[in-house]
Amino acid sequence: MASVLFLGACGKSGNSTNPTSSGNTPVAAANVSIENFAFSPATVHVKIGGSVTWTNKDATPHTATDLGGAFDSGSLAVDQTFKKTFATAGTYTYHCTIHSMMANATVVVGN
C-alpha cells in the first residue's frame, strides 16, 4: 500500500514542476525538440521576457526560422541548441528553411 502512495506522489510532483508545458498558460522558459523532422511541441506559450530553446535531435541539420524575420537559428547540427528571448507579445510562426514540410510551428508570447 505504501508503494502505491509513493508512486502517486512522485507522479504528481513531476507534473507540477514541468516548466516547458505546451499548454496555454505562458511559462518563463520552454524547450522545443527538433526530432523526426518535426518541432515538438509545435506550439509553446511563453511570458513576455521568456525564452524558447530549440534542440536538434535529428542526425540532419535543421533551422528554426521565423516567417516574419524576428529570429533565425541558422543551421543546427545534431544536439546543437538555439535560444531566443521574446520581449514583445505576439504569435511567431516559424519553420525549417532546409525542410519545407517542417512548417507552421508557433511561439505565442503574452502574459
Rank of each mutant, 00 (worst) to 15 (best):
G49T: 11
T43A: 05
F37S: 14
A28W: 03
D79V: 11
A70K: 10
A105F: 00
H95Y: 14
K47A: 13
A105E: 07
K84V: 11
D79F: 05
S40P: 00
G23C: 08
V52I: 13
M102K: 04
D66L: 09
G49N: 12
W54P: 00
T88V: 15
V32C: 00
A87L: 14
N24H: 06
K47H: 05
F71E: 03
S40L: 10
F6A: 15
G8C: 14
F6I: 15
T97P: 00
D72A: 15
K83N: 13
T65A: 12
V78W: 01
A38N: 09
N111C: 02
T65F: 06
V44P: 04
P41F: 03
N24D: 15
K83Q: 12
N15M: 09
V109H: 07
V27Q: 15
V4Q: 07
C96Q: 03
S22V: 01
V109G: 01
T55I: 15
I98L: 15
T17C: 11
L76Y: 04
L67T: 14
G50A: 09
H99L: 10
A9R: 11
T43C: 05
T85R: 15
G69M: 08
A28M: 10
H62R: 04
V44R: 03
I48Y: 02
A89K: 09
T25R: 10
A105L: 07
P26F: 08
G68A: 14
T17Y: 13
G68L: 04
H45S: 14
N15C: 05
G23N: 12
A59Q: 06
L7F: 12
N18A: 10
K84H: 15
T85A: 10
G11R: 08
P41Y: 05
T65V: 04
A30T: 01
P19W: 08
S75P: 00
N56D: 08
S75T: 04
E35F: 13
S33F: 07
A103G: 04
W54H: 03
A70G: 05
C96L: 12
G74R: 06
S13Q: 12
G50Y: 06
S33Y: 04
V107P: 06
I48N: 04
S22R: 05
D72S: 14
S73C: 09
P19V: 14
A103P: 01
T25S: 13
A29C: 03
S40I: 07
S40A: 11
T17W: 08
D66P: 00
A103I: 14
M1R: 10
D58K: 01
A42M: 07
F86S: 11
E35R: 09
G8W: 08
T81D: 02
M1N: 09
K57D: 01
A70L: 03
T85W: 03
T81A: 06
M1I: 12
I34C: 01
S13T: 15
N24M: 10
S51A: 14
N104I: 02
Q80F: 07
S16K: 09
T17N: 12
P26N: 02
P41S: 06
N15S: 14
T20W: 11
K12A: 15
V109C: 06
Y94A: 06
W54G: 02
S21M: 05
T43I: 11
F6D: 12
A30Y: 03
